[in-house]
Amino acid sequence: MKFLSAERIADFFAALATSFELRLPVMLPDGTRSIGTLEDGPIALQGGALDSKPTAVFFPQQEVVFTARDGEVPDTPLPARPLLVVGLTRCDLDCLRFIDRFFAGGWRDDLYFRQRENAVIVAVSGYCGAGGSLLPLAAGNCDLELVWDGSCWLVVPYSESGGSIADSIADSTGSGALQRIRTESLFHIDEGDAIIRRASELLRANRVPDSFWEEIGDRCIACTGCNLVCPTCTCFGVQDWRYRNVVERSRMWDSCQLAGFMREASGHNPMGSEALRSRRRIHHKLAADPERWGEISCYLCGRCDAVCPTGIGIVAVSQELVARFE
């Protein structure tokens, strides 16, 4: 099995940057960990899930859909080099799988797949969570996995492109450490998992009264952060900027926590109260998606709970809900 010492990581990525458009975890100037380029800051593979969602490289907060000049829409050239995206955790990969399926369904979203199609996904796992805690092994769902065993990064390929990257590494080691991490990962329990499953059952059994959602709605300032940081939220709005002979259409992340999200042209709003919108946010992930896709669409990345200024992220709300109505 190939491995990389911590000292070799910078050279390893610098070499990959010659053939890929690199997006990897970096430490920004104030200590925020984010996905960026080698120019944005020092590489920061350690520390667990990134503060912002790595799926934004395929579906950014705002992007141009097309720019029409004199009524003509030119073809958008494909990216010159494929993306190599590093730093997804096991739950980030679940999220990516979920939105891949969403964007591929019905009208295939060419904007999304323009970047996503040939991208190489590199996961991180092992003892590189916050404070050296275990990030469970992804074991698939990606091209390559970098597994921190406490002293070096074990390189585990899962696809052809992942394999050829691994092949370029010279150093080899035994696979004992990987086995240990694989076993530990099997026993890794995220306490949030049981909570959201129990919350999901309560919601699907219709055991949560409207008054609960009124309370949650009272605490929501509609910052929209929960939606915007969620890797499985895919809703977007569309705007046209028209000037001179140009129409520039772009799309941007939208939020179901905004009244305008479902307000109809007449002014009628089927989600016209804070309570209804708060309910929808949780209900969609824990009750509606299981019916449509067969799985809860929260993979416990923790970002909405971290970003919410009033403590009503999905796990926090699920905890309250379970404590009061189970």
């Binding site: 200590g31 925020t32 960990r33 503060d51 705002q62 509609a222 910052c223 992340w253 971290a306």
Partner: peptide, 28 residues
């Protein structure tokens, strides 16, 4: 050369990783 979004600073003593809706749209 094109703004495509914002990200909160998670270490800032005032905003502590959060933003309001205007902050999230400050690039727009």
């Amino acid at each position: 050369g094109r703004l495509i979004g914002v990200e909160p600073s998670v270490t800032h003593p005032v905003s502590r990783g959060g933003l309001c809706v205007k902050g999230w749209n400050a690039f727009a």
